[in-house]
């Protein structure tokens, strides 16, 4: 018993104070929201698009270039390919949006981050959100970083958000993975078993677009090919802070004025 107490004192209190205080600093090399410097991009010089493993970089509608954050793996391939350094990564972890089309990142436009749920849903779920998680393909990295939110460092329970063991107990579904053909029916069954009203959250590039496995015949290119999705959280995998930020935005719990980012981000 004395050892248990000794260890308890050694391990201290470690829960982050976000969102009431600024979030923990991101790693120096963290690859967050991409920055596009359109002035550096030479017209017709499309080497970044050719290098992108998931074709997330698109030149369309006369615009210089846009990045589909739903497909983006937040890798370095475009940055390494571009001799003009037109694309770089900021350490901004805030990426969650409510609409699929809001995932398109344009050079000079700000990202339309997720708005809070409407009146009735916020009233129903704002203080108690029970989620069922379905891992539907993918690589288990998104699952790992969703799990992290349950540790003492993040303590998701303090927001009334909890992962439950039965769909009947759930208010919504959190989906990871591209939805493999072999998980499609289990996913749809789980969705059906959750009582109305319910929300669906897609975490990670796989669950949004198919991610690295996009267009494989074994997968369904993400959850919204099958179900209505209310929140998209991009990343491969998204940082736990990106996931937490997305969940809290649903309830209007994030005050962007309290978040100090590096200059210019």
């Amino acid at each position: 018993m004395i050892n248990v107490i000794r260890a308890r004192i050694h391990q201290k209190h470690r829960t982050i104070r976000f969102p009431d205080a600024p979030p923990p600093a991101m790693p120096e090399r963290f690859r967050g929201r991409p920055r596009i410097d359109a002035t550096r991009c030479r017209d017709g010089f499309r080497i970044c698009a050719a290098a992108c493993p998931t074709n997330a970089i698109v030149f369309a509608d006369g615009k210089p270039l846009v990045i589909d954050l739903g497909k983006c793996l937040f890798c370095n391939d475009c940055k390494l390919a571009c001799p003009e350094a037109a694309i770089s990564h900021s350490t901004d972890y805030r990426l969650a949006v409510r609409q699929h089309q809001d995932l398109i990142l344009e050079p000079d436009a700000a990202l339309v981050l997720a708005e809070e749920l409407g009146g009735k849903m916020k009233k129903l779920l704002g203080r108690s959100l029970k989620l069922r998680e379905v891992s539907a393909g993918g690589c288990n990295a998104c699952e790992a970083d969703v799990n992290v939110l349950g540790t003492v460092g993040w303590d998701l329970g303090r927001f009334g958000i909890q992962f439950v063991a039965a769909p009947r107990h759930a208010d919504g579904l959190l989906i990871t993975g591209p939805v493999t053909q072999n998980m499609k029916s289990a996913l749809l069954d789980t969705y059906t078993a959750i009582p109305e009203p319910k929300i669906v959250i897609a975490v990670g590039s796989c669950a949004i677009s198919g991610g690295p496995f996009i267009d494989h015949q074994e997968v369904n290119n993400g959850a919204d090919s099958l179900l209505p999705v209310d929140l998209y959280i991009p990343g491969c995998p998204p940082h736990p802070l990106t996931i937490l930020d997305g969940l809290l935005r649903l309830f209007g719990r994030v005050d962007d004025t309290k978040i100090a980012l590096k200059k210019g981000e």
């Binding site: 891992s135 393909g137 993918g138 993975g177 591209p178 493999t180 072999n182 998980m183 289990a186 496995f213 494989h216 015949q217 074994e218 997968v219």
Partner: peptide
Amino acid sequence: LGYQHRGIEKA
């Protein structure tokens, strides 16, 4: 098993 099969070897 096989639920996570996403065809990587072939890809």
